[in-house]
Simulated assay, not measured.
Amino acid sequence: MRATVVHNGELSVRSVPRPEPGPGQLLIKVLRAGICGSDLHVREHSSELNEVVTELGYTTAMTPEQEIVLGHELLGEVVAYGPETRGRWEPGTSVAALPVLRTDGAIHMVGFDVDSPGGFAEYCVVQEAFTFPVPDGVKPDQAVFTEPLAVAFHAVRRGAVSARRPAVVIGCGPIGLAVILMLKAQGVKKVVASDLSPARRALAVECGADVVVDPRESPPWDAYKQRGPVSSLTDYLGFGIDAMQVVRRIPLLPWETVLLNADRLGQSPTGPVVFECVGVPGMLEQIMTAAPLHTRVVVVGVCMEPDTIRPAIAIHKEIDLRFVFGYDPAEFARTLELIAGGKVDPSPLHTGTVGLDGVAQAFSDLADPETHAKILVDPWA
């Protein structure tokens, strides 16, 4: 079969053996595969990725000298089943799948491993237990967004954003745009998006952002009304003095109980929930330095290089720092339901489609934020 492979950072189209499904697996004819920011990263930083995941116990991740078929955002049609499967869906059924395989007892990440070639190919193998049928009427250019939108859904859930608490999205590349879509789908009333690119700010509006800002002109923290004295430590301490003066004047008031439950009742001063979707060194430090007190920072962008932060800044502001990775099968399935039901429309992210011969150029084109957000691969184009 034909496939686009990466070898020592170079992309080319080759003829490679068609994979065969093993126990618990099925073969799909790839209809679409999305080019992810992770694909762009590992093309240049596969050694760093290998080093990190090896420490986590995953020892077969790609290295630069290996020839790898990338592509983990998968959509395809059922072709054939391997042994020990239930044959749940008829051949020709459109399916989306989590990019994880278990072969001979070992776990492999599809599109990042020589033992699990990805979707930049005519055919691909997926795990039956991690595969979900696409509801009737959902177009391939929509269903293929299940995987990246599931990443965003997981990030929003981990962020625990209430409808009333502002959300700030830093970076409006594909994952930032996906986070905006999911925030609005979850009913968050105020979503502020920040990006240097005019084109991506425009896409953020299409995805539902309530306010978009160019950070060179105005900080995102000025784009909404803050609840309580969270702009500075001295304001917050002054607020504490004023509050204690009030509550201690009221006879028989259990003021300790009132204050201890203020946060649970949503009455204590709080900052926004910030989604860091850039993934470059220095961005976390910038956010923690500039953000209001009691801000929750959800790190979605993948920074492949060492970084430095000042914990003392985060401590004095009580910054809540959360890192997110991937999603679970329930989040994946729910994301597909949201797309099928029209609750989430990923079409603003889709800015181009190429065949296998166009993947190398697409990787180059995605470096320009004014040109593209998400490019899909149609292996049969």
Rank of each mutant, 00 (worst) to 15 (best):
M62Y: 10
D104K: 12
T85S: 01
V78N: 00
D141Y: 10
P19L: 06
H72W: 02
D39I: 13
G76C: 09
F112K: 02
E77L: 11
K29C: 08
A80F: 12
R102V: 15
Q25S: 07
L98A: 14
G87R: 06
E77V: 09
F130S: 10
P17R: 12
I107D: 04
V78F: 08
F120L: 00
E55L: 13
A80Y: 06
E67L: 10
V125D: 03
Y81E: 05
E90S: 15
R18W: 10
V126K: 00
D136I: 15
E122G: 04
D141E: 15
L26Q: 04
L49E: 07
V69H: 01
T85H: 04
H41A: 07
E65L: 13
A97E: 04
L27Q: 03
N50W: 14
L26T: 05
T85W: 10
D113A: 04
P83E: 03
F132D: 02
L98P: 09
A97R: 05
V53P: 11
R32N: 07
V78A: 02
I68K: 00
E67C: 12
P135H: 01
M62C: 07
G57Y: 12
V69N: 03
V69E: 02
V125F: 10
A33I: 10
S38F: 01
E67W: 09
I107P: 05
A106W: 09
G87I: 01
R43L: 10
H108R: 03
V138T: 12
G137R: 00
L56V: 09
K29F: 10
P23L: 04
F132G: 02
L75N: 13
K29Q: 11
G22T: 05
G119E: 01
E84T: 13
L70M: 15
G76K: 05
L74M: 12
E77N: 14
G24S: 05
Q25T: 05
I28Y: 11
V114D: 12
T59H: 12
V52T: 04
P133A: 04
G105I: 04
M109D: 13
P133Y: 01
P117K: 01
E128F: 12
G71W: 06
P135G: 03
G118K: 00
A129G: 09
V138L: 11
T85K: 01
W89S: 01
A129I: 09
V125A: 05
P91E: 03
S38E: 00
E90D: 13
T59P: 08
T54F: 14
L56Q: 12
P140E: 01
A121H: 12
V126T: 05
R86C: 08
Y58Q: 14
C36A: 04
Q25I: 07
V69G: 07
A33P: 03
V79P: 08
A106R: 13
R102I: 14
P23I: 07
Q25F: 13
T54L: 13
P21M: 00
P17W: 06
E67K: 13
P91K: 08
P99M: 08
R18A: 15
P91M: 00
G119P: 08
T59K: 14
G71Q: 09
K29G: 09
P21K: 01
